[in-house]
Design a protein around this nucleic acid. Structure first.
Lengths: 193, 193
DNA sequence: TCTCCTCTAGATAGATCGCTCCATACAGAG
DNA sequence: CTCTGTATGGAGCGATCTATCTAGAGGAGA
C-alpha cells in the first residue's frame, strides 16, 4: 500500500528533524530509516525535500498538539493540566536521553531566516498551538487578552525550557518553567473571583 | 596579520551560525564571508569545523553576555535592567528583520543530541549566563535559591520568545515574555521588605 | 488479455561537502 | 645572507548531497 510508505517517510523524517534538524538530515537517511524506496520519496513529494519538510512540520505540529490536548483532557482542571504538561515534558526528556523535545523547534530556528515557505509552516503550527491554549483558558473564564498572553507566555516558556534542558541535560529549567507557569495561571484564575 | 584573519573567520562564522545554524553553514561559505584564505581556516583550526564551531560558540556566548551586562550596568536598577534587556531584544529583532536573536540557540538545538563536545560548549555558555544573571539578583538582595530560579526562568523565557518571535515575525512573544519576567523580578524584590 | 495507473528499482547527473596536500610568500632570528 | 616558523594560495581528493532519468513490476478495470 502506498499510503503506508508515505506515512513511514513522514514519520521517519519527523523523528530525524526533531533530533538533528533540517539541514543535517539527508533525504537518503530518511528513506533508509523509513525502510522505504528512495524513488517513492520523489513520487509522493515531487518538489523534494522542502515539500516533505512542509508536510513533516504540519504533521509533527498536529501530533504534538493532540498529545497536549490529551493531557489537558485527562486533567481535572486547567491548572493541573498545565502542571501535567510540564511534568510530562520533563519526564519525556529524561526517558529519551534529552532527545525528544519540541518536534519543530530546531527546524523553526534553522529556517526562520533562510526558507520563507518553511518558516511560514512553523509559524502556522505555533499559532495553532497558541490558539488551542488560548481556548482552554477562555473556557476557564479568563478574559481574552489575558488568555492569549498566558498562552504565548506558557508556550514560550516551554520552548525555552526545552532548549536549556537539552543543552544542560537537566530538567531543572523545565521544572522551573512549569512552576512559574502554574503560578501565572493560578494568578489569572484568582483574578476572576 | 594573522590574528586579524582568525578573528574575521570566527566573526563571520558566528553570524552565519546565528542565522542559519551549524549544519547549513559550509566552511567555504565562512571563509568567503570572512574574506579569508581557505587554507587559513585549517591553519588556525587544525581539527576543522568542529574546533571552529567550539570557538564560535564560546566567543558568541561571551559577546552576548557582555552585551547584556552592559545593558544592566546602564540601567538604574535590576528591575529596569531586565526590562531593558527584553526591550532591546525586541528592538534588535525588528531592526534585523528577525535574523539576529540568540547567537547559539540554533546550534544548541542542532548539536544537543548529535555532537557531545559542541553540546557541552553550549551548556557551558548557558550556565555562564545563568550565573551572571544570578549574581545580579543576589546583589539586589534576593536569596540564592530564588535568584537562580529567576535567572533560569528569565533566560528560558528569553530563548522561547526568540524562537516564537522569529517564526512569527512579530515581537508579541518577546513583549509578553518581558512583561512576565519584569513582574517575576518585582515579586521577588517585594518579598524582601 | 490488454490497458492504465501507481509505485518501485537503480543508475547517475551535477553540485557541494569537509578536508588534505604541497608550494610559496614573508617575517624575524641568527 | 641563510634558516625557521607562520600564514597564504589553490588544486583536488573522496564522499555525500539533492534531484532526475528511464525502465519495469504489480494490481485493477475493461
Amino acid at each position: 500500500m502506498s499510503t503506508n510508505t508515505k506515512e513511514r517517510i513522514v514519520d521517519a523524517g519527523a523523528t530525524l528533524f526533531r533530533r538533528q534538524g533540517y539541514a543535517a538530515t539527508g533525504v537518503k537517511q530518511i528513506v533508509t530509516e523509513a525502510e522505504a524506496p528512495f524513488s517513492s520519496l520523489y513520487h509522493f513529494f515531487p518538489d523534494g525535500k522542502d515539500e516533505l519538510a512542509t508536510e513533516i512540520i504540519r504533521s509533527s505540529g498536529h501530533m504534538f498538539q493532540q498529545l497536549v490536548e490529551f493531557v489537558f483532557d485527562s486533567s481535572p482542571d486547567v491548572l493541573s493540566g498545565v502542571e501535567n504538561c510540564f511534568a510530562g515534558a520533563a519526564e519525556t526528556l529524561r526517558q529519551t536521553g534529552y532527545a525528544d523535545a519540541c518536534p519543530i523547534a530546531t527546524v523553526a530556528l534553522e529556517v526562520a531566516s533562510t526558507n520563507e515557505p518553511l518558516r511560514e509552516a512553523t509559524a502556522e503550527v505555533f499559532e495553532s498551538w497558541i490558539k488551542a491554549a488560548t481556548d482552554r483558558f477562555l473556557a476557564a473564564g479568563i478574559p481574552e487578552k489575558t488568555a492569549r498572553e498566558l498562552a504565548i507566555g506558557l508556550i514560550g516558556a516551554l520552548e525555552g525550557a526545552f532548549l536549556l534542558s537539552r543543552a544542560a541535560r537537566s530538567t531543572e529549567p523545565m521544572d522551573i518553567a512549569g512552576a512559574t507557569s502554574v503560578a501565572a495561571v493560578r494568578a489569572a484564575l484568582a483574578q476572576l473571583s
